[in-house]
């Protein structure tokens, strides 16, 4: 059936205006695939009819649904396992040494989608810090529908198959019908909030020690990338880190960040004077900067494999590491 040129242009303009995500010509297939379920649910013959209905002044819910459908992307647990491995091995010890004595570690999972990144970080932090130690993870997304799912913490069988180590499935999930429910232990350290990365951030955001802004900037045009990175910088704690997707960079876009190679991943930190409160200082042990020499690639999960004498019985010790 396809999407007509004028309907595609209207959708493209709407999504760009509301989320800054660029849908260039050639993405008609994406619009059709994402909006067809909405059209069917509304009892309409096709995507074009749904788009025309959404153009009526009173069709606010339809316009919102279109933006959400086109800004929601598939995600998985521990997506890009090397990033999580480096976060744990290289970044976390420095963060803990530097600021955990003063207040709980605070992490922002921007573009949290259905919450897998935020919950993955929570699993890792509980394992690393122990269950009693507090931390704060704030997951945000533009789409209310996915945020509600993230808050509920209920996932399908197919979703828990996507990159979630079995030992975490056993430890942090409970069967719930045909799906799985994350444990209250994971949920208690996480808040999910609505936030549009392409608009001015709402007041009251705290200063973050780490911002995971992965696989978002690739959808933005350059001015929006610049604005977003500047705003992110302003909510980063001194000595904080920004983690982008593996295909993304801040270089040449925002001079307020400097790139630091950290284990198997790259991270960015605000250059002196550009962060929240502008009292930027290097993290502990970073006075002269960490050598920017990539280490030899190690396995993504150095000790995920149990020993040759695996534990047994219900008191299974799940000691592998991401």
């Amino acid at each position: 059936m396809g999407v007509g040129p004028s309907e595609f242009t209207w959708v493209s303009d709407l999504v760009r205006r509301e989320s800054a995500i660029v849908l260039p010509p050639g993405k008609e297939y994406l619009v059709e695939a994402r909006l067809l379920p909405l059209a069917r649910a509304a009892g309409l013959a096709g995507v074009d009819a749904y788009i025309r209905a959404a153009q009526r002044p009173t069709s606010l819910a339809e316009r919102r649904a279109i933006v959400e459908a086109l800004t929601t992307n598939e995600t998985s647990w521990f997506r890009d396992a090397t990033v999580f491995a480096s976060f744990r091995r290289d970044m976390l010890p420095r963060l803990l040494a530097d600021r955990m004595a003063h207040r709980p570690l605070r992490i922002w999972s921007a573009a949290a989608s259905t919450g897998q990144e935020a919950y993955s970080l929570a699993m890792l932090l509980i394992e690393e810090l122990g269950p009693a130690r507090r931390f704060e993870i704030i997951g945000t997304d533009i789409a209310r529908g996915v945020l509600e799912r993230a808050r509920q913490g209920r996932y399908t069988q197919m979703e828990v198959n996507r990159g979630l180590p079995a030992r975490y499935l056993v430890q942090y999930f409970q069967r719930a019908g045909t799906g799985w429910q994350v444990s209250p232990e994971l949920q208690r350290n996480i808040q999910f909030r609505e936030l549009n990365l392409a608009a001015p951030f709402p007041p009251g955001l705290p200063a973050f020690d780490v911002v995971f802004l992965r696989n978002v900037l690739i959808y933005f045009d350059t001015p929006t990338k610049q604005t977003t990175l500047r705003r992110v910088r302003q909510v980063m704690a001194p000595g904080g880190w920004l983690v982008l997707g593996t295909a993304e960079t801040a270089r040449g876009i925002d001079d307020g960040f400097e790139l630091v190679r950290m284990g198997d991943m790259s991270a960015y930190r605000p250059v002196s004077g550009s962060a929240f409160g502008s009292a930027s200082r290097p993290p502990t042990g970073q006075a002269s900067g960490r050598p920017s020499v990539p280490s030899a690639r190690s396995p993504s999960v150095p000790s995920a494999r149990p020993s040759s004498t695996p534990p047994s019985g219900p008191s299974l010790q799940l000691s592998g590491r991401i």
């Binding site: 079995a166 056993v170 149990p306 534990p311 047994s312 299974l316």
Partner: peptide, 9 residues
């Protein structure tokens, strides 16, 4: 399965 020695499931 994990207790028997499987590394993943």
């Amino acid at each position: 399965a994990l207790a028997a020695g499987a590394h993943e499931y």
